[in-house]
């Protein structure tokens, strides 16, 4: 589904990604962990199509297409979803209008008619129940005045509405209490199907108790320096990142 090959990227002239290689197959959940500043959010931004990040080398292929040539909106229409670390407040734009526009753009892309108002509202209702979000949130402006937890749940709700093929969740667990974390994780598990995949970016192991990854990667200094099964997350939780840093340094010296 997604093949990242020697990806290098910079923000405002500063090299952040220094050669990332990653392959994701349908149905897989990949966790990307790593210390602050290692490039996790930059990787998410590159995949979602943020102009701010400049790709300097390498390639990203998504279902055989060159992802880097696609606009952010086209990537979304092709099934890529980014759950934001800091969801944006947009006063004056209602959740209903926002989601209706997004869902119908996607349908148009697939050659489908726009949903009728009643079908759309029905869909909203079902998805709200699925991800257990407060029905009142949908009547408000996008993220405006939402608490941190509400904003993150709202990301999961949008994901449920858009049914992506590849969802990238950028530290969706940060700042959540245990109940909100459970809601977010349950949402992911309900949306999970054999043909869609997730990249879960997180600092902490605790989210991975609920969303069980197939593969865990450690991103450090712009490269994936370690890849293993879910037990790696536990090891990181226990020992921190220092031993990884040491390993990397030793490798370079060797």
């Amino acid at each position: 589904m997604l093949v990242i090959n020697n990806l290098k990227a910079s923000i405002e002239g500063k090299n952040i990604l220094k050669g990332v290689n990653l392959e994701i197959k349908p149905g897989e959940i990949h966790a990307i962990m790593g210390p602050n500043g290692s490039g996790k959010s930059t990787l998410a931004s590159v995949l979602a199509g943020r102009d701010l990040v400049k790709v300097t080398e390498g390639s990203v292929t998504y279902f055989g297409k060159n992802l880097l040539e696609m606009s952010a909106e086209d990537r979304a229409k092709e099934g890529i979803f980014l759950g934001f670390q800091y969801p944006i407040e947009i006063p004056g734009v209602s959740m209903v209008n926002f989601m209706k526009a997004a869902v119908n753009e996607q349908r148009k892309h697939k050659g489908l008619e726009p949903l009728s108002a009643s079908d759309f509202l029905k869909m909203m209702r079902e998805k709200k129940e699925l991800v257990e979000i407060d029905s009142k949130l949908a009547n408000r402006s996008v993220n405006e005045g939402f608490s941190g937890g509400e904003k993150k749940k709202n990301e999961i709700f949008q994901m449920a509405m858009l049914e992506p093929k590849l969802a990238i969740l950028d530290e969706t667990d940060s700042g959540l209490d245990i109940d909100a974390l459970r809601v977010v994780a349950n949402g992911v598990n309900k949306i999970k199907r054999p043909d869609n995949s997730f990249i879960v970016i997180t600092h902490y192991q605790r989210l991975l108790d609920y969303i069980v990854p197939d593969v865990v990667h450690v991103l450090y200094d712009g490269r994936i320096v370690k890849t293993a099964g879910k037990e790696l997350a536990l090891e990181l939780e226990e020992k921190g990142y220092d031993w990884i840093k040491k390993e990397v340094e030793n490798n370079i010296l060797a």
């Binding site: 606009s71 229409k77 947009i90 004056g92 734009v93 926002f98 526009a101 753009e105 996008v142």
Partner: peptide, 28 residues
Amino acid sequence: DDALFYLRSRGINKRDARLMLMFGFAHE
């Protein structure tokens, strides 16, 4: 720009996303 990208990342094209932001601004 952040708001514009947020809307575009949901599949809303640039022109419509700009309109939506301006409309939201005025709707207040």
